[in-house]
Nucleic acid binder design. Structure first.
Lengths: 184, 184, 184, 184
DNA sequence: AATGAATGAGACTTCATTCAT
DNA sequence: TATGAATGAAGTCTCATTCAT
């Protein structure tokens, strides 16, 4: 009987993985359910045994990714360096590990429509991140921490976009330069 | 010169305007040709008199927008301030004036697919902009101008994203802060 | 330009006619949109130019039929005979003329679900008919007109069902017998 | 005789009961096998252990219901009143007891298609009932017993329909009125 | 006996595009 | 120029049914 659970989870994981990859490379709207099921090596119908709709599949992808990212941020190992440095390094690390999710997110976040609900939740995450940045800036004794947090967050976001957009983007170097700016 | 041309241009302008608005708010894939023609107050057939396909309509939007932006950058009036300051101020100005185009662009640039051709052209624009930034940084005597250009470009891009994404984003303040960083 | 209107109405009429026939003989659920478009000699897509959904097609069928029936009842020509006699004769006449609609109605009215809205409107019609019957009974000086109206209405309805159900049902004879019962 | 048989019958009974309820309220076509198995608290596979198809499940429902009804009619306890009165009272009693089956039947009998076989069998039942009515009318010395049987049968059927269709339908009163009409 | 994973046909619907007028 | 009728492919989703366990 636990065999069912195993197969179930196997199929679900495969679907989530494939869907994330396709959504990332072609976009949510341009990716068909048929395409996903096909690439996952299963029938169209089976997908619908596990997900009530394309939307719900997207939601599951978000749920899992956000969870992973949150966990990763919370339990970030104490490396050397200032809070700001750690934050930026951790972000870059996550960016590399979860490229597909970031691509999906960047491709979907401006034209929500389908996913307004998801975006609302993302905003909370975003606010949390900006707040963390602000705390780090305060610790570092930077003036205007509110505005600086917005700027730093934007810089990190822009850097991430360009990394996803251009081949061979020297993200580590750019990140180092950014970190340097916040050292006294 | 006769009425034909006038009406023709009027219709085309209307279509480009409406399509840009819809693509910006709902995304390219999620916007239907019917929807565009309807909102523009004309028939499906007429739209196809002016544009051979949905793609071509998108291309025209890009052509016009890129042209406008380029013109605006080239003939930017000599205001006071450093080259960097002028560049940033000009970017913010354009961002506000052409929000819909930037939304469309941000929503489409990562998952090209349909528009790989357009993206190739955009890359040239992008390289040109990054180069301009680098020139300005060199003029200002900033070290590591190559890397600094990448970072500054990313910061401006990120700031723009957040402006498009969040209501009441204090873009002018963030821009001022960013400018300040590059003053000796 | 009025040519469009003509074609439009021609197509719509054809669709309504075919759909009514198929819904009547196979039932609403068991009749596919493809089937309807096919029998009407047009493409699937065209149907959706005129009707937003299968439901809406059903609604249009109801709208038209109810309208016809109402009109027919209101302007029933003054024949000889009591009000009751006229009512029954008129019902039988309509029953014969609109067999398909009655079949559809009888096959759908108990399991509403899809069409709860339609059924609510039908109830009003039903109440109106029962009231007319009651008025006639009162005129004829029949005691217990409320209950008698319910019984007579039920008898007419049952008679109609059997006419739709069985071949060669002697509806006119049964109707005559029923009429006879309400003659003093 | 062992446990197997017991559980088997328990499951089958549950399925028949649930299916009848759902078919009655939503219609045969609109009720899915999944829905039935779910409401019955068992798996899809198990349902298919007992019934080869959806059709067969419907057939079993009919078989059981017709059997029950026949039995009930045959062994109707000798109450007071004429044959006609007894018949009508017995019909009303059965109507109340087996509302779901009557709903199903009324919703399916006009658009047979799937169930032409079942309907053929039902016709025999129907003929039998009409014949019983005729016998009773003959006993009561009513003239034109053939036609009168058709009318009375239709009245009973119509009354039943309205009972199933409308809330708070005063079926007993209507039935009493009908009975009264056949008392000398 | 019992589960639910798995399938594929077919349902409804939308869409970009073409064409006669 | 201008209309919208017409098409057919493709999209999302549901369903009855089978099968390995």
């Amino acid at each position: 009987m636990p065999r069912f659970q195993e197969k179930r989870e196997l199929s679900i994981n495969k679907l989530v993985e494939v869907a994330l990859r396709l959504f990332a490379s072609k976009g949510y709207e341009a990716t068909s359910i048929r395409n996903i099921a096909g690439e996952a090596g299963m029938s169209l119908g089976l997908l619908y045994n596990y997900f009530k709709s394309k939307d719900e599949l997207l939601e599951e992808i978000f749920r899992r990714s956000v969870e992973d990212i949150h966990a990763s941020f919370v339990q970030s190992p104490e490396q050397g360096g200032s809070g700001i440095e750690q934050h930026i390094r951790q972000t870059v690390k996550l960016l590399k590990e979860k490229q597909d999710f970031w691509k999906l997110l960047h491709g979907i976040r401006i034209q929500s429509e389908v996913v307004r609900q998801l975006m609302t939740e993302m905003q909370e995450q975003t606010a949390y991140i900006e707040d963390r940045i602000r705390q780090n800036l305060i610790e570092a004794g930077i003036p205007f921490p509110d505005l600086e947090a917005k700027l730093l967050f934007a810089s990190i976001d822009g850097m991430s976009s360009h990394f996803l957009l251009y081949d061979h983007y020297p993200i580590d170097d750019v990140a180092s330069l950014l970190i340097m700016k916040y050292k006294k």
